[in-house]
Amino acid sequence: MVNPQMVMYEEEFNQIQAVVDRLVKEANAKVVFIVDKNGQLIAQSGDIENLDSTSLASLTAGNIAATGGMAKLLRENEFATQFHEGEKANIHIQLVGKRVILVVIFDARSSLGLVRLRVKKASEELNSIFEGLLRKVQEPGRDSPFAEITDEDIDNLFND
């Protein structure tokens, strides 16, 4: 198939979470999260209590997909960075590698300059983590935990 299966293991997740946690602090951000291009949330950090991150993840991916489509029509490479300025909150969106999206939400306690600077470093780190992850997923002999599920397992899911 076109895309290899997206898998997250504990080791890589911890590395990613560390990058995201650090980015919240170093960029004075409110929230940082990472989404895959299909809209699935991978990691988040910061003031996430009252945040509907599932919805935000899906909309972020839709947004990146739409601007990617615009870029294609303009024969441009993908727009790797987007910035939306609000009255209180600002949102900085960065494409990392070709697969994941790094989103930083910040307010007046930070600045676009600072966020840009910190995002640049964080994306390099994330890029190498995700590349490693992709290689790992493609290694032969890594069976999916679903290889052994039975029809019964699947039916049970719906018997309520």
Partner: peptide, 15 residues
């Protein structure tokens, strides 16, 4: 493409 997360023990699929 589904997304298997071993940490949160979740599988995400898109329909």
């Amino acid at each position: 493409m589904s997304f298997i997360n071993y940490l949160s023990r979740e599988i995400n699929c898109k329909i």
